[in-house]
Amino acid sequence: MKKILRTREFWLAVVVAVMVFATNIRAPGFATPARLADIFDDSSILIILALGQMVVILSRSIDLSMASNLALSGMIVALVNQAFPAVPVPALMLLAALCGLALGGFNGFFVWRLGIPAIVVTLGTLTIYRGVIFLIAGGQWVNADAFSPGFVAFTRIDFLGLPLLSWYAIVIVAAFYLIMTRTFLGRSFYAIGVNPTAAVYAGINVGKTTFWAFCISGMLSGFAGYLWVSRYVIGSVEVAKGYELTIVAACVIGGISISGGVGTVAGAVLGALFLGVINGALPVINISPFWQMAISGAAIILAVVLNGRSGKQSARLILKEAEHTR
């Protein structure tokens, strides 16, 4: 119990809960299960994306191309659906994930094999992937009436009281929890993030592990591409433009250290929920969109300051150690 109290995830959960109840005082009815389920549903895509970004950040990299990847993969399945309405939706979901996987693998290849810094590679592909949407769609939008009913329904169908979109997020969160705590790959992400040199000596292939991180973030971006287009019923060049920074923000608020190696699945989920709650709550209590942005921004800085302080403590211990070993 004491241990839980000391984790930053616990305190972040407390903050999210306080925000929900405080809003409920100003706007009664906000904290009803139905409204909260809505907020979760609204945050589902961000949760999925934040998990993908998390593995990349853990490996001391960053993926700025996630939103462009999402938009491109989403456009591809939208066009396929428009041209061949008979293709079953699960096949399209798989196609979206595979497109994303390929795009993420492309990033990972450059980082792994050519040793180019991730921020440079993904800054490039951020623009390239979006440019490709122009090429394949000829600058056209795919409008609401162009989609097959199934394409739109597969995020909305109600299952045990929650829309399928929420269930996708729940399943992915569960899978990630398992990957990060119980698999060789998950442990490797932490090891290469905390101390890449030691990881090499322990027989872990750092480059390849980073490559897998990009594959995962890419695959989730691609899958989220289908989810986004289905949920907002539109495919265009503008889809999720600038969203890459929201994803990074969710991770940072969730306590995932930008310098790698530190972060949990619960943190990423809570970071995404925090932003989801702010976006859901502030309009209800009549706070202007400007304040929404300012509050999200302040939360990011606050999170970094708090995480930085808890990190510093251990650094001081290491230094004391270093003096001893002189």
Binding site: Y190, A191, V194, N195, A198, Y201, A202, G203
Partner: peptide
């Protein structure tokens, strides 16, 4: 290795995960 801090111990991971890191497979 010689440089314990940099190449040996994975500071930031718990003891048990350090011990099992090369034996994970």
């Amino acid at each position: 290795p010689e440089d314990r801090g940099k190449q040996g111990a994975v500071i930031g991971l718990p003891i048990f995960q350090n011990v099992t890191l090369p034996s994970l497979k």
